[in-house]
Lab assay of single mutants.
Amino acid sequence: NQASVVANQLIPINTALTLVMMRSEVVTPVGIPADDIPRLVSMQVNRAVPLGTTLMPDMVKGYP
């Protein structure tokens, strides 16, 4: 099973992602692959992302 990117904390709308905000976890449904975490750094979320939420491609501005 492939690990996905999961919010490690509440991420407010328009926040630029940092490594501490994300963790990898095997979840269903599958979200953004954990391998993409380095690419996500400094990209902004377009909505508030609660703790434990799987990051989906449509939540991150400019992804992929």
Score class of each variant (00 low, 15 high):
63 Y>K: 05
42 S>Y: 08
15 T>K: 05
1 N>E: 07
48 A>W: 11
10 L>F: 13
59 M>I: 05
62 G>A: 08
55 L>D: 02
25 E>M: 11
37 I>N: 01
55 L>T: 00
58 D>G: 14
28 T>F: 14
7 A>T: 10
22 M>N: 02
4 S>V: 02
43 M>A: 10
61 K>L: 13
16 A>E: 11
4 S>G: 05
39 R>I: 14
27 V>F: 02
25 E>A: 15
23 R>K: 10
11 I>N: 00
36 D>T: 12
6 V>F: 01
10 L>C: 05
33 P>I: 08
36 D>I: 07
35 D>W: 06
62 G>Q: 07
64 P>F: 09
32 I>N: 01
7 A>E: 00
18 T>L: 07
38 P>I: 08
1 N>M: 14
36 D>K: 11
56 M>W: 05
25 E>F: 07
8 N>L: 06
53 T>H: 08
27 V>M: 07
64 P>A: 11
23 R>T: 09
46 N>W: 07
58 D>V: 09
62 G>D: 14
45 V>A: 04
6 V>K: 03
16 A>Q: 09
38 P>L: 13
40 L>G: 00
8 N>D: 12
55 L>P: 00
16 A>N: 09
22 M>A: 00
47 R>K: 13
2 Q>A: 11
33 P>K: 12
32 I>T: 01
51 L>Y: 15
63 Y>R: 05
64 P>N: 11
10 L>D: 13
54 T>G: 02
47 R>A: 09
7 A>L: 03
54 T>N: 02
37 I>L: 12
13 I>R: 09
27 V>I: 05
37 I>T: 07
60 V>Q: 00
41 V>G: 02
36 D>V: 09
10 L>T: 13
63 Y>S: 06
20 V>R: 08
19 L>N: 06
26 V>C: 04
56 M>N: 06
1 N>D: 12
57 P>N: 06
18 T>G: 05
30 V>N: 15
55 L>Q: 00
45 V>R: 00
13 I>D: 14
57 P>H: 11
63 Y>L: 08
45 V>T: 14
26 V>P: 06
38 P>F: 11
45 V>K: 00
1 N>V: 09
37 I>W: 03
24 S>R: 15
10 L>K: 08
11 I>E: 02
45 V>L: 11
56 M>S: 07
49 V>P: 02
15 T>G: 07
58 D>L: 08
2 Q>L: 14
57 P>K: 05
